[in-house]
Simulated assay, not measured.
Amino acid sequence: MAEVPDPEIPMGLFQDVEDLKAEVARLTAQVKTLTEDTDTDAGKAFTDDDSAAGVETEEEGQFPPFILLLDPPEYDYELRALIEWVEGVLVPGYLGEPSADARWCHLWFEHTVAIARLHALWLAWQELTDPATCGYTGPSVWHRDHLDPCMRELRLSSGPFAGCTKGEHQIDHRMPGIVPSAWSLTED
């Protein structure tokens, strides 16, 4: 039997409470289904309604790894996607004419430091331009905390493009001979 709304409670509040009750009941049933049926893949137990309600499946909840930690062919796929973003969004929208004080290399993808910084910038952009993830202030945070510092570091006259001019391309980076131990597991 349905509850009769109390005339003292505003109708909108009553409807909100009823919606919340229904959502709690749905989530409780989902948890029960997932915990009872351990033989089934948890990702398959989600319905289309769940994804529309913002429930992340196992695949959707995975974050992309940092590009320098990838091996081929994953590295190649990630680099190709990064190049599309840099050339399609970043360069036309944010880069002015290169100068001695603000360098840019058209072969930026051959500079490991640039790949690392731009990939981190792109990951932040993906997260901070989605209102569902960060609200409407995300783009402002991305500009202030990610874009501006990244571009400052990349485009410095002493940055990774220091040897590159319009007619020349140089990669004079110091490359580590050994991968830092924090990035690899070593057996003693």
Results as ranks from 00 to 15, higher is better:
Met1Thr: 08
Ala2Met: 00
Ala2Lys: 02
Ala2Asp: 05
Ala2Ile: 02
Val4Lys: 03
Val4Ile: 13
Pro5Phe: 03
Asp6Thr: 12
Pro7Gly: 06
Glu8Phe: 11
Leu13Gly: 07
Phe14Tyr: 09
Gln15Pro: 01
Val17Cys: 09
Glu18Ala: 10
Ala22Lys: 04
Glu23Met: 14
Arg26Pro: 04
Gln30Met: 12
Leu34Val: 14
Leu34Thr: 15
Thr40Trp: 06
Asp41Trp: 05
Gly43Ala: 13
Lys44Trp: 06
Lys44Phe: 09
Phe46Asn: 00
Asp48Val: 10
Asp48Tyr: 07
Asp50Arg: 04
Ser51Gln: 12
Ser51Glu: 13
Gly54Glu: 12
Gly54Val: 12
Val55Gln: 00
Glu56Trp: 08
Glu56Tyr: 07
Glu56Lys: 12
Gln62Ile: 15
Phe63Ala: 10
Pro64Gln: 14
Ile67Arg: 00
Leu70Lys: 07
Pro72Asn: 06
Pro72Arg: 00
Pro73Leu: 04
Pro73Ala: 01
Glu74Phe: 05
Glu74Asp: 14
Glu74Ser: 05
Asp76Thr: 13
Trp85Ile: 03
Glu87Leu: 07
Gly88Cys: 05
Pro92Lys: 01
Tyr94Asp: 14
Leu95Lys: 03
Gly96Asn: 15
Ala100Gln: 11
Asp101Lys: 11
Ala102Asp: 10
Arg103Asp: 02
Trp104Glu: 10
His106Leu: 06
His106Ser: 07
His106Tyr: 06
Phe109Ala: 06
Phe109Val: 00
Thr112Pro: 02
Ala114Thr: 03
Arg117Met: 12
Leu118Phe: 04
Leu118Glu: 02
His119Lys: 12
Leu121Arg: 01
Ala124Gly: 07
Gln126Cys: 11
Thr129Glu: 09
Pro131Thr: 06
Ala132Ile: 07
Cys134Ile: 02
Tyr136Ser: 14
Gly138Met: 09
Pro139Val: 02
Ser140Thr: 14
Ser140Asp: 14
Trp142Ser: 11
Asp145Lys: 04
Leu147Asn: 03
Asp148Gln: 15
Pro149Arg: 07
Met151Trp: 05
Met151Gly: 00
Leu154Phe: 08
Leu154Glu: 00
Leu156Gln: 10
Phe161His: 09
Phe161Asn: 04
Ala162Gly: 07
Ala162Asp: 14
Ala162Pro: 01
Cys164Leu: 09
Cys164His: 05
Lys166Arg: 15
Lys166Leu: 15
Glu168Tyr: 02
Ile171Glu: 01
Asp172Ile: 10
Gly177Met: 08
Val179Trp: 05
Pro180Thr: 02
Ser181Thr: 08
Trp183Lys: 14
Ser184Trp: 02
Ser184Glu: 13
Leu185Trp: 12
Thr186Phe: 07
Glu187Gln: 07
Asp188Arg: 09
